[in-house]
Computed example of a mutant assay.
Amino acid sequence: MIKEKSIEGLSSFGVVDEASTPILYHYCSVDTFLAIIQNKCLRLSDINTMNDFHEMHWAYNKFIAAANADLANYDRKFLDEIDTVLSGLQLSSLPLIGCFSRDGDVLSQWRAYADDGAGVALGLDTSLLGRLAVRFGQVVYDETEQLEYFRKFLSFAQAIWKATDSKPELRGEFKEFLFILAFDSCLMKNPAFSEEKEVRLIRATIVEMLKDGRWSLRDSEGSSEDTRSNEKQQIRYRARKGGIVAYIDLPLDGLGPRLVKEVVLGPRSLNNGIEVSMALASQGFEGFEVRHSTATYR
């Protein structure tokens, strides 16, 4: 699995600035908080079950808009092949994602993701999360930036595509290039969600149709500094609002005892902070702080 790969002129897209964002926050219930610190795993779930029902379609529509804006510059066969490969990727790969925010005290986040304010915002070390075997990126909400990404991408991709005529060995690189596009598309969202200041961990899983007509989903090995998250993980399923959601529990235990930097208690939390501190210490975490939300919500 590709963790991250620079694209000429596009390498800064979705990059998380660790200097300005040293902590990333995962809003969750107290039950989920305890599951994360006790199991030392973070759950990554099917992107199609996120709160934005337009996930991926938003990015695809921006891709079409970018292609139409410069239609005269592109060979029709090139655009058709791009569309065919991208459609195939959607059938052969399923992104599983974990969601974080750059802000640990936002009322709408408390209400939507942290048990209506009774939960916590678990603040993890950004630099350590970046070691995991995932695509690690900041969501881009600006539509102009999204369009510019695709315009640059198409220009560069066509250059590779044309070169494959004389260098067939570049076909693999061309498809790899499109695979990166599929990852980056997961980092584009409707600007209506911009208040969330979201950062995502994205793991690609492989969709297969077996010989007897059954469908299968499996994880792939990673390539990163963290050997534990490189390992193939078991795909599990859970029920959500009558549907079935695929997920993996990605190991965090290779990131060390200082992964947790801060825990923010929700505005309706029943905890005074001592219990949270004891729970973290019992699991070997150290060097963290606990504070209360400033939101006056009940």
Rank of each mutant, 00 (worst) to 15 (best):
A239K: 10
D142G: 01
Y141T: 14
S166K: 11
R240C: 07
L250K: 08
Q233A: 09
K197A: 05
K197L: 11
R214K: 11
P267Y: 00
E221M: 04
R218D: 12
P257Q: 00
Q233H: 14
F177T: 15
I274S: 07
Y141R: 04
T164R: 10
K211Q: 12
S155L: 13
L170E: 08
A182P: 12
E148C: 10
L265Y: 02
Q158R: 11
S269M: 06
E196G: 13
R171N: 10
P257E: 00
K232L: 13
C186Q: 02
K175Y: 12
V260G: 03
R214F: 03
D142Y: 02
S269G: 14
F183W: 01
D249G: 06
G273F: 11
L252H: 11
T227P: 09
Y149A: 00
E208K: 15
W215K: 09
E195K: 08
S216I: 01
S194G: 07
T144D: 14
E169D: 15
E195H: 11
R258M: 06
E196A: 13
V276F: 08
K197H: 10
L181E: 02
G222S: 10
E262Q: 12
K189F: 04
F156T: 14
L154K: 00
T164Q: 07
V139P: 12
R151L: 13
N190G: 01
R236V: 14
S229M: 04
R200H: 14
K167S: 13
V260I: 15
M209A: 03
S216M: 08
Y237T: 09
E208Q: 15
C186I: 04
T205K: 04
E225C: 02
E225F: 08
S269I: 05
A239C: 15
L252E: 07
E198F: 02
F156M: 09
G254V: 12
L217Q: 02
R236P: 09
V263I: 06
L187Q: 06
K241H: 15
E225P: 11
E208D: 15
S194D: 06
G222Y: 08
G243I: 14
R218G: 03
S185W: 01
F193Q: 07
A182C: 14
F177P: 03
K167V: 15
R238N: 03
G266W: 00
T164C: 01
Q233R: 13
E195I: 11
V264F: 00
V207P: 05
V260E: 05
A159Q: 15
L210G: 10
V263E: 02
N271H: 03
D165V: 08
R238H: 12
